[in-house]
Design a protein around this nucleic acid. Sequence first.
DNA 1: CGCGATTTGTGCACGCGTTCACAAGCGCTT
DNA 2: AAGCGCTTGTGAACGCGTGCACAAATCGCG
Lengths: 243, 243
Amino acid sequence: MSQQRTGEASGPNGSAAVVGFSRTVPDFPDLPEATVARLPEYLRALHHLADTGHDTVSSEGLAHAAGVNSAKLRKDLSHLGSYGTRGVGYDIAPLIAQIEYILGLTSRRAVALVGVGNLGHALAGYAGFSTRGFRIAALFDADPQRVGERVNGLVIRHVAEIPAVVAAESISIAVLATPASAAQAVADQLIAAGVTSILNFAPCVLSVPDRVDVRKVDLAVELQILSFHEHRKSARVNGEVRT
Amino acid sequence: MSQQRTGEASGPNGSAAVVGFSRTVPDFPDLPEATVARLPEYLRALHHLADTGHDTVSSEGLAHAAGVNSAKLRKDLSHLGSYGTRGVGYDIAPLIAQIEYILGLTSRRAVALVGVGNLGHALAGYAGFSTRGFRIAALFDADPQRVGERVNGLVIRHVAEIPAVVAAESISIAVLATPASAAQAVADQLIAAGVTSILNFAPCVLSVPDRVDVRKVDLAVELQILSFHEHRKSARVNGEVRT
DNA sequence: CGCGATTTGTGCACGCGTTCACAAGCGCTT
DNA sequence: AAGCGCTTGTGAACGCGTGCACAAATCGCG
């Protein structure tokens, strides 16, 4: 698991102060983080089941499709309120709606992408973003030579335009695919412009205010973790000796 | 954190049966998984420190550079044996060597990449892989139109060649960047050819034998987790009511 | 040589997450 | 209507990971 999570000093949540009287769904202020991280996977599995004609699914079936065990799945879903019937299983359609609501995917979120190099170019064209609740609303790069180029129907803007565009499109999530050396400065600009969540592909640690969430994806780190297991597997068979 | 980890029924490890008498470093059969996942980040920070002229670093300094707290860092490093001196800090050079050894990065590992589409193309050209211990040794795709194309100095081969090439180059790690619909079939072929670690970018669950390690990276999942926190932040300020 | 400043290494307690195991509930059949 | 099989929801125990707090160790300086 390679992500940078910022402090999130869980302050007094709003639900107590709210006058709400016709609320049918609670706020989910303290959904366990581990559960949140699995909800997207459940959602993907549920969509797949719905697409293949299923109407209901048992915890065992959904757990298998999502790659977890059924007890964990049931406990996770129990946090969302009860969308299953004993003896039968879970109704897929309302469960999808509920998870999408909790994840804030009812309206398609606008995302800014900064750094349209090798990786950024691919991310800009990645179909999975648009099919799963997001809309890449703006591309930025610092290289004047790239500014103006069209990628996937969007024109690349200069990073200096971040404040104007982020405000105009009311963007709150940004994807950072710049070189590590530029990442912190770009992050600062994004945050100043109003961004409060960053997905960081640059191999460096970002320092951000507490209110900003950062998740880090480092492709080399993932391979290195696999490499460790490879190393250990091979050490099992021939007695490893340090040289 | 979004990764699929397979059972890994930790059987009797080999270290007890090995005759080794001149071993200076133990095998690390039971390094905590959480520690392993952080070692690459420590390694990156250490390289950066070394490049900027540092010789030693305190746990506080390295922890800050890696984005963790110092107690955790010290405990992690204590698992590797003692590479620090009290009152001074850690010697950077031997620590780098030790972590690279544990991660199995002393020789550059060959990696196969399957699926040279949008994302795969970017991964094939990603400089971070080659600068951090890996060598992309082969590219595969199922599309005959793409076969033969050169990407970053490598020619794309047809997936049917997987067995021959994987064996010839003795590749044990593969990166999967195919569409979800093809991922399981390709994984089966890779495993049959001898691959024992897979980094899966396809949004689907792979079922593999216990001896094979799978890590999953799903870009949309990362965004959806951020979206949840965005949703919750906005629910804090205006009292969220379900419509 | 001894003392104080500094930093590592770690015992311990706490909290989160996972898993088991079972009671509670639903529907179908007889 | 009653019984049976199946599935959810959850209480409880367990284990892992984290972070505090302090003892042990090293260096530098007087």
